[in-house]
Structure formats: C-alpha cells, structure tokens
Nucleic acid binder design. Structure first.
Lengths: 214, 214
DNA sequence: CAAAAGACGGTAACAATGTTACCGTTTTCT
DNA sequence: AGAAAACGGTAACATTGTTACCGTCTTTTG
C-alpha cells in the first residue's frame, strides 16, 4: 500500500482534518481506469469506497433490456453516495459505475470508512454532503425525465458532455446518446437533425460539433 | 416535552439500543398531522427529523408549474432520508412532505440527531439504512418513469394506494392521480376508461373501485 | 485485397403519450 | 336559487416511442 498523501493534500486538505488525511494516505489504494471501463454493475457487492482524484466517474441505472439512464457524475474531489450508503449497509450496488474518461481514485475498504464515520467529523460531513449533492443530482434527473421536453434534455446533455471533455466536439453515436438518456435512437437522430437544420450543431459519423448558438 | 418511551418500545426496541430509546423518549416531541396536511415544501429549512409512529408520510417533487411526482413513502417505524441528509448539511429541503393519511411522528431537533450519529451505532445504522432504502425507492421511481409504460405505472399506482388504505376503493380524482404520477389528467382518464372497459375496475366521481382481476 | 458482416444514421409509418380546448354534469359556494 | 368551480368525457393535434427498411461507411475475415 503506497503513500498517497501528496495528491491528497492538494484536493482534500481544506476539507479533512490532518489526522484523517494522514490515515487516508496510509490506508487507501490508488485505483486507475481507462475511459469507458466498467467498475461496478448493479447487484455486485461493494468492498471499497472511492474518492475521485482525477477524471470523472459516471453512475447510471440499467434496466433488464440494457437501457440505461445517467444518474450523476462524480468529479475530482468528490465521493460516491451510492457506494457510501450501500457499502455501509452491506447492500449490493443498485447502479452501474464506469469511467467517463481516464480516471484515478483513492479507494478505502468499507470497514475503515465506517470507523471513520464516528472517528472523524470531517469524514462524516464529507459523506453526508456527498449524499445530499448526489441525491439532488438524481432528483434533477427525475425532474428532467418527468417534466422536460426531449429537445431541451438533449441540448443540456450535449452541453454537459462538452463541458466534461472541454471540447465542442462530442464523440458519440446517436445510439450511445439515446442509451444514456434512456430514450430511442430514432428520437435522437430526429432531434439532432432538427438542431442541425437550425444551425445549432453539425453532424458527422460518431461525432457532433456544437456551435456557439447552441 | 412529554415522555414517548412506551410507543417507542413497541416499534424501535429491536432496532435501537436501550440508552438511545430512553433518550428519544426524553428529547423528542410527538407531532401529528391530518390526512393531506403539508408538512414541508421544497426550499424550507429543516429543523427537525421525523420517525413515523403511525400513518404514512408522502415525499414528492414539485416543479415550477406545480406538477408533482411521488418519490417515496415513509411508513411506520421508518425515517426520512431527505430530512436526515439535508438536515445534517443545513440544506433546505429539496422536496415536499405531506401526510398521506392521519400521521403521528416523533421529531428530534437536527442538532441532537447529529450528536446521536457518533454516539449511537444503532442510530447511525438506522440513518444509513433509511438513506439506502429511500434512495432505492427514488431510483425505482426513475426506472418507472423512464422505462415503464403508462398503463402499467397506473395499475401499480392504484394497487399501491389500495394497499396503503387497505381498501379496494381509491378516493382520488383523475387530476390528483395525474399530478402524483407526473402526467396529464387526460392521459389518466383515457387509460382508466380503457381499464374500465376491460372490467378491471369501476369508475365513479372521485372514486375508483379496483376489481380482483386488476 | 475482396467479400461479408456489422455499425451508423436517415426515413417512413404507426402507436403511445402529452397538450389544449370544449362540453355537459355534479358539487360547492354565496 | 343562482353562480362558480370541480370533474371527467371527448376530439384534435403535437411530441415521443417503436419497428422496419435502406444506403453508406467501417471492420472483420478469409
């Protein structure tokens, strides 16, 4: 087990008390994943809880037919509410977790994280803040699916993807977009075509260029 | 502040350690509400966290136009994940809470509940279990809205309502049903009419009788 | 390298759901 | 009793979901 305290300091020093930082450095392991790699699927047991050091972890719900719905992203400096809560209750995961892009995380065994809950106020606060934030993200997903129109959801989705990658080019097929949004490929193609006619983006094979007006 | 330990024992004795039961009895207050009463709306601050002693608490999301979506119910012996997590982070509520039927709850100030998190393992476990369960309920709502057809959702909804009230009569207008399901009154009327023609239920003004075949 | 297989996205046709509008009836308010 | 509001049926149209088919491009395979 290596010492990860140097990376930790830059991200978590303002949030965690020094004793906790020291212990994270000693007792966590650094796990990396490449873009697209699936880290956990619904039904699997949770042995470790992650803190994202770089990259983005994508958490989504998958139904029986393989249809998917994006629930929330875990970004640098954040934890994952599902692993915190399921992990502590020895419940299998309800969701799929995958690397949105190249990802590195500090991971701590569930048993240690439970110990920290009572030992370190700053850890307890971190866990509860994570749960609130990601609960809110899920509720926003519910809101969007329930109340928003498809074209608005699609535009928001593309903007979010562009923001994460830091580029106006989104490298996804219509099928991939439909899957993540929990809708149908034909619907996505139809709306994208409409947006292209409105000169808000340009369509290529497996690629979409967002224009300023979007 | 009255002593609520007698009611507590019957519901929570298997779950809470005796010291905690004693403290809940001393430091909580019993709050009652009549069916339909709204207890908290999105944006309000959370001062107390509830444990339901009898009846059902309904938690739902309301958007700008007043459209609503049922997220989960809190039943006898259960706590509310949203109040636990938002309360601890001093975040205003994200949701609306209302009495589904006549309701009594033991309520504890947020500050005390935080103290208990580190003091009583059984309380920590109760809070985390509540969060996991209700997170799962919310995810099931998301699943239903995203992947299920409306007629199936409607039938499930009616069965759930019947189960809660313990009666095959559901006393709700089509508008109320549409609101809770996050859809449109006309859609509900249309599907209910279809179900009546299929002899799965009977329609009356403000009332629906579920038949065995449903 | 060439043929086959698969991925991709455009399109049509239809089904399911959402939206607005209008109507007659029943209930509530005054 | 009369006015106003709530309720639910229905029509017409818009949006979204679903299946099917097609031509093009990419990858696989022999």
């Amino acid at each position: 087990m290596q010492d990860n305290s140097s990376q930790l300091n830059s991200i978590f020093s303002t949030r965690f008390e020094s004793l906790l930082i020291k212990e994270v450095g000693e007792r966590s392991m650094l796990i990396t994943a490449t873009a697209g790699q699936v880290l956990i699927t619904a039904g699997q047991n949770i042995k470790m809880v992650p803190m994202v050091m770089s990259g983005t972890l994508k958490v989504s719900r998958v139904n029986e037919e393989g249809q998917e719905l994006l629930l929330y992203y875990v970004r640098e400096g954040e934890g994952c509410a599902m692993t915190f809560s399921c992990g502590m209750m020895s419940q299998p995961s309800l969701v799929k977790g995958a690397a949105e892009d190249d990802l590195s995380m500090l991971c701590v065994p569930v048993s240690i994280m439970e110990e920290w809950m009572t030992k370190y106020p700053s850890w307890k606060k971190f866990v509860m803040a994570t749960i609130v934030n990601e609960f809110m993200d899920v509720i926003n997903s519910v809101d969007a699916v329930t109340f928003k129109k498809m074209d608005e959801r699609l535009v928001n989705y593309l903007k979010e993807k562009s923001k994460i990658s830091g580029s106006s080019l989104v490298n996804l097929s219509h099928q991939q977009i439909a899957d993540e949004m929990g809708t149908n490929r034909v619907v996505v193609s139809r709306l994208l075509k409409k947006l292209e006619i409105e000169k808000r983006l340009l369509l290529y094979r497996n690629q979409i260029k967002l224009l300023k007006e979007l």
